[in-house]
Simulated assay, not measured.
Amino acid sequence: MSTPRLLRVGWHREHFLSPLLQLVAEDAGKSLQLVECPGGTGDMQVKLKNGEIDVCIALTDALIAGLANGKTDYKLVGRYISSSLRWAITTGKDSKYTEVDQLKGTTFGISRLGSGSQVMASVLSLQQGWGPDEQPKFQVNGQFKPLRDSVNAGDTSVFLWEWFTTKPYVDSGEVRFIGSVYTPWPCWSIAAAPAANKEAVKTFLSKLQPHVIDFDSEASRAGPAIDFVEKTFGQQRTDVEEWLKTVKWEHRLAEVSEAVVRKTLGVLQEAGVVPKEGQQWDMATFVDTDVAKIVESADQIN
């Protein structure tokens, strides 16, 4: 009798994924295999397309943008974080850029085309009111370190990355913050490849959920969650404490909010990330209803 294949879970090395790491430790290789995706959500999308992973926890906006722009390599199967994400606007330690307004028409570093780093650059442009001739250009740099190297070399003006993941490199003097931008949507969702074993995905969600609820609890936030992130990701304890004040996990994972999908699409349309005209968005394009339940209510952004 053949051994069932492990469910391959794509992840990026960020503190938001702490409950996932705790589940994987408990699973001990019986049903789950972690596959690291250093390039973030764009990397996960490529691995989903190539059949290298079955499911992933990734950025809501990039997942939805990909589906709206015709990707068929995955669908949403759940929600994960209900709060927004703070993206740091980061430049080189000796660069000439000191203010966001100076970035009009410059070249932003991004991890991959369609990634959150590109999507949020377009959202930033929308929020700043930059005109057609002031839109950012993009240079694909791949992973986090090449992005940092690029701003220090002057090849790009800035890049966007999660605030607390970037902060240690600011503290060390490698790069500088010049601002931040927040997502106007719940920032992390769960997606799976159509070919993934749906029962395995359902089981994964049901096993992950109690770990999320526990990590998000008042008791965990008072100490154990801080200890885990500090030890696992090497972040300063004060930074972990500050981060935990800003983040809220979902407690019903196997659901997708239609209101969130449509709100996100609206912002992405205004930012020019997805087509703006003539679209009648069908939720079947975005959600695998064999796994997730579509709910009407919107998630709350903290």
Rank of each mutant, 00 (worst) to 15 (best):
D239T: 03
D239W: 08
V240Y: 02
E241Q: 07
E241M: 14
E242K: 11
E242Y: 07
E242C: 05
E242Q: 11
E242R: 14
E242G: 07
E242F: 11
W243V: 04
L244Y: 01
K245L: 13
K245W: 05
K245H: 14
K245P: 00
V247Y: 02
V247A: 04
K248D: 07
W249F: 13
W249G: 04
E250A: 12
E250P: 12
L253E: 00
A254G: 12
V256E: 01
V256A: 03
V256F: 06
V256I: 14
S257Q: 07
S257A: 03
E258W: 11
E258L: 11
E258P: 09
A259K: 14
A259P: 06
A259F: 08
A259Q: 08
V260Q: 11
R262P: 03
K263T: 07
K263H: 15
K263F: 07
K263A: 13
T264H: 14
T264I: 05
L265V: 02
L265E: 01
L265Y: 03
G266N: 08
V267M: 04
V267C: 05
L268T: 03
L268V: 03
L268N: 01
L268G: 02
L268D: 00
L268Y: 00
L268M: 06
G272S: 09
G272P: 04
G272A: 11
V273Y: 00
V273E: 00
V273M: 01
V273H: 00
P275F: 09
E277A: 15
E277V: 14
E277Q: 15
G278Y: 06
G278E: 05
G278C: 15
G278I: 08
G278N: 15
Q279F: 07
Q279G: 12
Q279N: 14
Q280S: 07
Q280E: 13
Q280M: 15
W281Y: 13
D282Q: 15
D282R: 07
D282K: 11
M283C: 10
M283G: 10
M283E: 03
M283V: 06
A284F: 06
A284W: 09
T285F: 10
T285I: 10
F286C: 04
F286L: 09
V287W: 01
V287H: 07
D288F: 01
D288T: 01
D288N: 11
